[in-house]
Amino acid sequence: MKIDAQGVYYRDLNNQIRSAVASGAEKIELVNVNGQYFIGDGINRPVTISIKGVPGNDLGAFMNGATIVVWDNAQDNIGNTMNAGKVVVHGHAGDVLGYGMRGGRIHILKDVGYRVGIHMKSYQENKPVLIAGGKAGDFFGEYMAGGVLVLLGMFSDDPEKPMHGYCFGTGMHGGTIFVRGGVDEAKLSREVGVFELTGEDRQELDGYLKEYCKDLKLDPKEVLGEKFVKVLPKSKRPYGNLYCPMPR
């Protein structure tokens, strides 16, 4: 099913998408999208929404099981509190991706902005994974509580730019960040440390990356063919003693 989004107000567009989902559509193709907010929000069924154009902010928020494929760049706040499903972006994306995300996948081909993976979390079988193929801004993995963030630094429009920004992992207290090649330790927050991957880690990571490469038509040999490091929080309660010292 195809919907022409040219000049359509976001509320009307999302109503059209929701009624298409309710009437049992398996695949929805949106063309001429530009800036419409909240696409795919709260969708509970495993439909695939393909987007031509630049979708607006809060793409796939609260999404629960749908798949969104963006064939262009995307903006801020993708996958806010997303529960399950997948967002694939064949370009770059903005700030605050995967905010409080608690399951599912976000696969971005190129650069990402500030505060990516902020407060991602996991519980039992729910384990969100966000992979950025380009470079990242400051506060990568800020307040991260669970799940997996992966930064590749491979597909950037800006070769001059450093692979990641300052305050990497600020307030991180759970979850894992994998970085291809290595990190700039001067830009890490005090709350995190850098570790070697175990064989088990590498196996887990390779699984995520193979899926990423498949979605974005990349050569897994190239993406996987490099050393990765693992960034972990040093404490589960980095600010436990900030205001008043607590007994352990």
Binding site: N34, G35, G53, V54, G56, N57, N73, Q75, D76, H92, G94, D111, D157, D158
Partner: peptide
């Protein structure tokens, strides 16, 4: 927002 630029310049040379 990038969309506000793309609305008046659909194919920029560079976006960052």
């Amino acid at each position: 927002e990038e969309a506000a630029i793309r609305e008046i310049c659909s194919q920029p040379d560079r976006v960052w």
